[in-house]
Amino acid sequence: MASAEREINIYKNIRCLVCQGQSLNDSNSDFAIDLKKVIKKKIINKKSDREIYNYLIERYGDWILFNPPLKINTFLLWGFPLMFALLGGFFIYIKVLIPHSRQ
């Protein structure tokens, strides 16, 4: 991915902590400007996305990311939709498919 594109993708996934519901990409606050500069420098220094996110999480916590990372306490958030899909599928299987196969 081109570095400019990568840069913007990262900005879009980072919450401007001093703004209301804006991403870094949307904001021109001092905080956002400083953070963008720091991220840009890290990209030039060939840091990976993961390294950049970890750097920010260390200093500002998970809340700084719009996409919450998969962790023990966010496991349910990511796991529930899948679990419900499986349960629903199982339910449909029992209710609909089994009676038909008996005929």
């Binding site: 905080f31 400007i33 400083d34 953070l35 500069k37 720091v38």
Partner: peptide, 13 residues
């Protein structure tokens, strides 16, 4: 000058 030191120590403003 560019705010990078403040970011380094986790400042908001």
């Amino acid at each position: 000058k560019d705010g990078s030191v403040s970011i380094e120590i986790g400042a908001y403003g």
